[in-house]
Nucleic acid binder design. Structure first.
Lengths: 199, 199
DNA sequence: AATTTATATGAACGGTTGTTCTTTTAGATA
DNA sequence: TATCTAAAAGAACAACCGTTCATATAAATT
């Protein structure tokens, strides 16, 4: 099948493009540099993608896919601290995943320039997590596990440090600097947070 | 004095350049667009600045100037919650200052692409605040105002949400969306945090 | 008022950008 | 093996980039 060769270079294009976009952003990445990295000419790219933006959109396709499902939140939240610990473990895994990290870099670079990305960040990334955590905290409050308060605000206070630590890790890893000191922050955050809300 | 006319256009260049850099980043801002916004030709820019980078560096000159001085921390920290409330008030003022907001946007856009900026962010922005807060929390712990813990970690937990809220405000304001819901988060954070650490 | 000095203009440069086109090449089909 | 098809190459394009330079202009100095 001719599909094989075609899809093979298409995959190579996406891979190379992702690395370049993550390093230099959309404007800083030219179609020639992508093609060169793949090992083909720039004109050959157009056999696989309509234009540069199409490449970018394909690269960014699952930039907001999240491991956090709303499924079973009502039940899982009753586990209290264990629920939060599990949430943080998954958040940490994503933070240290090479591919997810590249997408995170792209997101942070384009976040302030691309309105669509910005909207998706707030909806898919922020609000999704806040909604999930809010629901969980609401359950915990009703179950008497934590002290009563505004669940959404509690969710914000819990999520914010995770994002900040992830950003720091990303920044350090760009320059290949060690992140060992930061990796324990996630678990410490759960302990600190739980101590402050638990009844 | 000829200085007058010169410095007038130089100021205009910096102003226009800052707005464009904040909106479209370094690569997305051309010297022609800066000149056009000022109302002069691109060649005239070079009478005031050596090159594009010199304009950018001038714009970014006080990107990391902070209202938080280490002066009197030892004494002020003894006020406990009031110290934190004051810190947050200043942080909030900076977040809603139009000029500081533009610089913050530029910083966030270039942070993942410009190594120097990244280094300065970690040193001047992050570590500076963490050092200041660490010192304050250490004093509070010794004074018996808050429960003993790692001061630096406590500082991280206190600072992280502030940054996250500021980022959200920035993102919303780019699209001219209301930020009223977010403006109260700063004060709520102080209350929430103090309740979790106070003895 | 005449001269000097600094700022603005307009054209031009070499280079890069995204994209399109025709031609060549290589793999799949018959 | 001959034919068809899809991917690659190579050249070219118009537009834009940062920067330079000779020239014109307006302001400041004498």
């Amino acid at each position: 099948m001719s599909v094989n060769r075609s899809s093979k270079t298409k995959t190579a294009i996406i891979k190379s493009a992702m690395e370049l976009f993550a390093a230099h952003g959309y404007k800083g990445t030219s179609v020639r540099k992508i093609a060169s990295k793949v090992g083909i000419r720039e004109s050959a790219l157009y056999n696989h993608f309509k234009n540069k933006e199409a490449i970018f959109l394909t690269v960014c396709a699952d930039i907001f896919t999240t491991p956090f499902s709303k499924k079973n939140v009502q039940e899982d939240a009753k586990k209290g601290k264990k629920f939060l610990a599990n949430f943080v473990v998954q958040y940490k895994l994503v933070s240290f995943d090479a591919n997810k990290e590249r997408l995170f870099r792209i997101m942070m670079i384009e976040l302030l320039q691309d309105k669509t990305l910005r909207k998706n960040f707030l909806n898919e990334f922020h609000h999704h997590n806040i909604a999930l955590l809010s629901e969980a905290f609401f359950v915990m409050m009703q179950s008497g596990l934590i002290r009563s308060s505004d669940p959404m605000f509690t969710a914000n206070e819990f999520l914010a440090p995770l994002f900040y630590y992830r950003l720091q890790i990303t920044l350090l890893r760009i320059d290949a600097e060690p992140t060992t000191a930061l990796s324990t922050l996630f678990e410490k955050h759960v302990d600190f947070f739980w101590e402050s809300v638990a009844l």
